[in-house]
């Protein structure tokens, strides 16, 4: 018998945030907008690039640590399981099998589960239902078509074989302003960080430099470039809404004079999206010299504007 309520991802290019939004809404743990979730969790500061500009950037960070902290900032306690299927890993199948019952329990309690790769797409998604007779989980990914369910036997066996689930356990009250402050500190750290998991990945200001270097050397993944530009354009648009919202509070009014700077970041990314439109995973990606030069100009503008914005954040929260 089929159990669980259909749960859609939130409308965003960042699949973890979209999945978290969908699950939290369904579980009654979040009633704000998606831009607010971007900001409060700190996910909206996740600007990470690989030196090849491949599409992995937006999902390469410490999932266990950061996903816990992100939802903790909105007062949601979560449990997670993470096992990478390396050739020397013995317990991968045990982890998957033991999780089946936990996922069912969470769904029966009205809490869908955030997971990695529930379909062949290497992105986060949602497990929202199950049918024990057919031995399948009902899932949702970031594509518009309704995906086929996930066989119990295939849990964790995506093309990037990481078994990852995050259960929403419970919710507590939290101090909104403290969480904003906490998220801004997290964002500032990301802006200045040098290495994210691997030396080939950079974040914040250095992520901009990675894009500019890749474009100048004409040595980059053309699909990844378009994908990342689109993901981050969406993210920064959401963050603009968030900053505009919190700047109305006296505690964060220091943002008011630099909102225009952040708007320039958003505008530069919107222009970059025009130079590097997304044509789907099977589309052809070619860039003219005009497009490459346009992208470099956009990224330089965005980097300078975000630098000014983050300087103000730094001056005000590190006092």
């Amino acid at each position: 018998m089929k159990k669980g309520q259909k749960t859609m991802l939130g409308m965003t290019w960042m699949s973890y945030l979209g999945s978290a939004y969908g699950c939290l809404k369904q579980a009654g743990m979040w009633d704000g907008g998606i831009h607010e979730l971007f900001g409060l969790t700190g996910m909206g500061f996740h600007f990470i690039m690989h030196e090849s500009l491949c599409p992995s950037g937006p999902t390469v960070y410490n999932w266990l640590e950061e996903h816990f902290e992100m939802l903790d900032r909105i007062g949601v306690y979560t449990r997670q399981e993470f096992v990478f299927k390396a050739s020397a890993t013995n317990t991968f199948d045990l982890a998957r099998e033991s999780a089946t019952g936990m996922i069912q329990q969470s769904i029966e309690a009205g809490k869908p589960v955030i997971t990695w790769g529930p379909t062949h797409i290497a992105e986060f998604g949602i497990i929202y239902g199950f049918d024990s007779q057919d031995r399948v989980f009902f899932v949702e990914d970031c594509m518009p078509e309704e995906p086929d369910p996930l066989l119990y036997d295939n849990l964790g066996l995506s093309d990037v074989p990481i078994f990852y689930v995050q259960y929403l356990v419970d919710k507590t009250d939290f101090n909104y302003d403290d969480s904003v402050l906490n998220a801004l500190k997290f964002g500032l750290n990301y802006w200045k960080s040098k290495v994210i998991l691997s030396p080939k990945y950079t974040s914040g200001k250095m992520a901009y430099e990675a894009i500019i270097n890749g474009l100048e050397k004409t040595d980059y993944d053309p699909f990844g470039l378009s994908y990342c530009v689109n993901v981050y354009s969406d993210m920064k648009t959401n963050m603009m809404k968030f900053f505009t919202q919190i700047a109305k509070k006296e505690k964060f009014s220091f943002l008011v004079p630099v909102l225009d700077q952040y708007q320039q970041v958003v505008d530069a990314f919107a222009q970059a999206v025009k130079w590097a439109p997304f044509k789907g995973p099977t589309g052809e990606y070619h860039y003219t010299d005009e497009a490459i030069n346009g992208l470099i100009r956009s990224m330089k503008t965005a980097m300078e504007s975000e630098e000014k914005f983050m300087q103000i954040v730094s001056q005000n929260i590190e006092q």
């Binding site: 299927k85 062949h120 086929d148 066989l151 036997d153 295939n154 066996l157 995506s158 093309d159 074989p161």
Partner: peptide, 14 residues
């Protein structure tokens, strides 16, 4: 091909 050869994770079919 996508299921069997690109991932090598021995995913089962329906």
């Amino acid at each position: 091909y996508q299921l069997i050869a690109t991932s090598f994770t021995r995913q089962k079919k329906y």
